[in-house]
């Protein structure tokens, strides 16, 4: 958080059929619908999140990710980051307050990987959902499905990892938590963090720009991951892989798809970092184990199915 960029704030996901998508993200994942706007977008949040929304669904004729946003600590930091982005040669777009309901102005820019990101400082604080602010109970009793705890991170696929690293680390203040290096020492995967978390955003090298691999949601325990797997079967939801463990981050995980083919992850655990930790490195020849610690073989679908 060296530059005031604090945490993932929201992700806007394109879906082919809004009703099916809302059912998936609320009934199955357990996100809570908090609003809709006159563009037809639906706003959702996970129950522990303190701001009004973290996931926005937009109906479109192709699925994928419109943008991911990070929340900045305050307006002066946002203004400084704006200057730093411009000085770095990044084209920025001003998105006015209220374009997303109850969200302050956003500074939008494209990373060299082809993905659109935003920074903002203000969003309506609605508090954790279903529990009181004073003397809070452990959890609300009327959560649905997987009862996801929070929107945690995204994994993006695209080119120009080095230039993207430069932007995220040197301008936005992320640090490199974990990486995959090929035989020449070229970084083919980078897991970047703002916090003690294993990643707040990750990139894997891919020739085509701007592809979306997954949006990930946090669960507390391995038992919750197994229960998520049960719910995926009960609802006949398209599964990708898992439950299993990653080598990278060591998170315990399961992957599945929303009804438009966007990949979701729910996971628990994973490594932590402090500023004195060195980045963790995996060698590309161990990529199978790095991605799927138990199978230790690459799965073509996981590497190539993207929206």
């Amino acid at each position: 958080m060296r530059k005031g960029v604090m945490r993932p704030g929201h992700v806007q996901i394109r879906v082919l059929d809004m009703d099916a998508a809302v059912k998936h993200y609320t009934d199955l994942l357990g996100l809570i619908e908090t609003d809709r706007d006159d563009q037809g977008r639906v706003y959702l949040k996970a129950w522990t999140e303190v701001d009004k929304f973290s996931v926005v669904l937009r109906e479109a004729d192709e699925p994928g990710c419109d943008f991911m946003a990070f929340k900045v600590v305050d307006e002066p930091s946002l203004q400084q980051l704006e200057k730093d982005l411009v000085e770095h040669g990044v084209d920025i777009e001003q998105v006015p307050e209220g374009e997303l309901k109850d969200c302050g102005r956003r500074v939008r820019f494209k990373a060299p990987s082809g993905h659109t990101f935003e920074l903002y400082a203000d969003k309506q604080y609605t508090g954790k959902w279903g529990i009181t602010e004073v003397n809070p109970e452990a959890w609300p009793r009327n959560l649905e499905g997987m009862k996801v705890v929070r929107f945690d991170h995204c994994l993006m696929y695209g080119p120009e990892l080095a230039a993207t690293y430069d932007l995220f680390v040197n301008v936005l203040g992320f640090y490199l938590a974990e990486q995959v290096l090929d035989g020449d020492g070229t970084r083919i995967a980078q897991f970047l963090s703002l916090s003690t978390k294993a990643h707040d955003i990750a990139f894997i090298h891919h020739e085509e720009m701007g592809k979306f691999h997954h949006a990930s949601f946090y669960l507390e325990t391995w038992e919750d991951v197994l229960r998520a797997a049960d719910l995926i079967s009960m609802t006949d939801t398209s599964i990708d892989i898992g439950p299993t463990r990653h080598g990278l981050t060591h998170g315990k995980t399961i992957y599945f798809f929303d009804p438009s083919g966007n990949r979701n992850e729910v996971f628990c655990g994973g490594d932590y970092n402090y500023p004195d930790h060195k980045p963790v490195t995996w060698q590309a020849e161990q990529l199978g184990k790095a991605i799927f610690y138990h199978d230790r073989v690459l799965n073509e679908r996981f590497l190539t199915v993207l929206t």
């Binding site: 798809f257 966007n262 679908r301 190539t304 929206t307």
Partner: peptide, 12 residues
């Protein structure tokens, strides 16, 4: 036929 997302999204 290769199986991808099963949701009309990935083209696999």
């Amino acid at each position: 036929v290769p199986v991808g997302c099963r949701g009309g999204g990935c083209g696999f």
